[in-house]
């Protein structure tokens, strides 16, 4: 139920963003890009919800040089059993949220902040140069 609701929310946001970036007003296009990037952020976060034994976290302490079992670091990567994500040992059942996607989404949010700031300034300068925010007026260059 929860997942369905989440999927619908993401889908509606995608649709809404796509509708907005097809508008003719620059500001609406920019808002559309913002909505789209938030839809993508939600998509990334929703990727990290796991139940059962497929929990992509690392057991043990931070090792010296990555994937060496001798140093106490355990990267359980049971490719032979058809399990693709790094998993905790079998038998333990926990609901867990992947910490990596949260780091990814944080990066994505910061990047979309920077690009949105830049594109807003650009829109302001376009308004200064052309005296309009209508994209149909911006046709001095022909692809």
């Amino acid at each position: 139920m929860n997942n369905t609701l989440l999927s619908f929310t993401i889908a509606i946001l995608f649709g809404f963003g796509t509708f907005l970036i097809l508008r003719r007003d620059i500001i609406k296009v920019i808002i559309g890009l913002g909505v789209l990037s938030h839809a993508v952020n939600m998509l990334i976060v929703s990727v990290g919800v796991f139940t059962g034994t497929k929990v992509p976290i690392i057991l043990g302490s931070h090792g010296e040089h990555g994937a060496s079992g001798a140093s106490g670091t355990i990267f359980n990567d049971a490719l032979a059993d058809g399990v693709l994500a790094p998993v905790v040992a079998a038998g333990t059942h926990i609901d867990y949220v992947d910490p990596l996607v949260q780091a990814l989404v944080l990066t994505a949010i910061v990047i979309s902040l920077a690009t949105t700031a830049f594109i807003l300034i650009l829109a302001y300068r376009i308004h200064e140069e052309y005296g309009t925010t209508d994209l149909r007026e911006l046709r001095r260059l022909w692809g």
């Binding site: 830049f118 376009i126 140069e129 052309y130 911006l138 001095r140 260059l141």
Partner: peptide, 11 residues
């Protein structure tokens, strides 16, 4: 103004 327009498209 040409630069602005092109950059907007690119961005």
């Amino acid at each position: 103004s040409d630069k602005m327009e092109a950059t907007f498209k690119y961005l």
